[in-house]
Every structure is written in C-alpha cells, then in structure tokens.
C-alpha cells in the first residue's frame, strides 16, 4: 500500500478539521469528494507532509513521515499540487518546472529531459518559454500539474486540479490521471463530481472531517438510486444521498 492512514486527526484550535480518518490506497486514482470545509485539503496537506497530524498513524510509500530520513525520501517520490499555487511571475514555464525538479533532489543530468516530458504531457509545449505572468488561470493550473509530475511521483496529490480548465483540457487531464494511476497512487481532491466519475477508480466522500463513504464511483451512484436525492447526474445524486444520510 502506498498510503496507510489510521485514525488520523488534525486540530486547529477547537476545530477538528480531520476527525479520525483511516484509509488505505495502492496504485490507482482516488477521488476525495466533499463539501467546502469537509477536511479534504487538510487531509491532503498531511499526506503531502506539509502539515503534521495531531494524532493517528500515517505511512506513505511504506515509510514513516515522522522520521526525518523517511520524510525526505517520501518527498523525493511525491508530487503535490496545492489548492492555491504560488508562482514566480518572472519565471518561464520550463524554468518553474525545472526549479521544482531541482528542489525535489532529482539528478541534475535528468532534469532537462524530465522537464520537457512534464511540460509536453501537460500540453504546454507551445508556451514552454512564456513567462508565467502572461498565462491564463487554466494554463497556470497545468503548470502546477507539470511541476507535480516532473519527478515521476509514486504518490501524486492534487488539490482541485481541474479548477480553471476548459472541458477539452479537463478531458486531456483525466486521461493523464488514468495513465499515471496505472502505476502510482493519485489522490485528487475535488468537488466536481464528474471528474471523479470519469477518472477515478475509487472515491472517498468526506463530511465534517470524517469519511462518510468509500467505494467505487459505481457504488456511489447506486446509493443515489431511488433516494430522491438532488443532482443532475446519477453520481451527483449518490453524492447528495450519502451527504444527506451523514447529516441526518
């Protein structure tokens, strides 16, 4: 298993953002769904080793992120796209991706090839030498994805990756996710239910810091059948039904 979480908790003052999450994940694409404030971003930040858990046990890529040497190794093999991607406006696309490749401790000789490959896979070849300040929001999001995949990560964590992407770009992105998910663990936090249906092999639904559903998209869809829950698509009705049950 690439991700093993046991009773993971994270408090911010009196608020418990993540309230006892247990989860196991091997290779595949895992969708993390939930309303705003459900704890998705906090959970993702803990898995990215940015945020330390208040309690519980976490093992990533077979290592303990609480141990200094293990954490460094995990970070070498990790890709992370935060919800809000900060960038250096004066950098070009390739410079930005190269910067993070170097900070991920990649062997310098391998960096140029990895940068070119990541930029191409994200459909940014024609903008590789454009300054980041000149790019649209959707393009910046793809730059963020390129830096996340540049080291060919075994654990890829993406927070709202499709925000700002147009439908064509989203379809290309889902194909990329499926390709990466064939050999790595990809965790995608989103509140776009259609992304989950199209790209994810499993889905976890969070509410108020807890997991209220874990299964396949088909199983989530089945929860909505005949429930009379709101939603424009079967998966959305499943999502609404599970959330209504959890809140009841």
């Amino acid at each position: 298993m690439n991700v093993e979480l046991t009773d993971l908790r994270r408090r911010f003052g009196r608020t418990e953002a993540v309230a006892g999450v247990s989860l196991q994940a091997g290779p595949g694409v895992f969708g993390l769904l939930g309303p705003n404030g459900a704890g998705k971003t906090s959970l993702l930040r803990m898995m990215a080793t940015v945020l330390a858990p208040s309690s519980g046990r976490m093992e990533l890529l077979g290592r303990d992120p609480g141990d200094h040497a293990d954490r460094r190794e995990i970070r070498r093999r990790l890709g992370y796209l935060p919800q809000s991607l900060g960038y250096y406006p004066g950098f070009t696309v390739s410079e930005f991706v190269e910067y993070f490749a170097l900070l991920k401790d990649m062997p310098p000789a391998k960096v140029p090839g990895a940068v070119a490959s990541a930029v191409e896979r994200c459909g940014l070849s024609d903008r590789a030498r454009s300054k980041l300040r000149s790019l649209s929001g959707g393009m910046l999001r793809r730059v963020g994805i390129a830096q996340a995949i540049v080291n060919d990560p075994e654990l890829l964590l993406l927070d709202e990756p499709t925000a700002g992407l147009d439908p064509e770009q989203r379809m290309a992105f889902r194909a990329l996710l499926r390709e990466i998910g064939g050999r790595a663990t990809v965790v995608v936090s989103t509140h776009l239910v259609e992304d989950v249906g199209a790209a994810c092999t499993e889905v976890t639904l969070m509410n108020q810091g807890k997991i209220v559903f874990h299964g396949t998209p088909a199983q989530l869809t089945a929860r909505g059948e005949g429930s009379g829950a709101a939603g424009d698509a079967p998966l959305e009705r499943g999502y609404s039904a599970v959330l209504s049950e959890a809140r009841a």
Binding site: A48, T49, V50, R72, E73, R75, R76, L78, Y80, P82, S84, L85, G86, Y87, Y88, F100, L103, K104, D105, Q147
Partner: peptide, 9 residues
C-alpha cells in the same frame, strides 16, 4: 511558492 516548498526534500 512557500506552500509547495514545504513538501520538498
């Protein structure tokens, strides 16, 4: 890029 830098080796 402070948030990202927190996740780097």
């Amino acid at each position: 890029a402070w948030e990202l830098s927190q996740s780097l080796p």
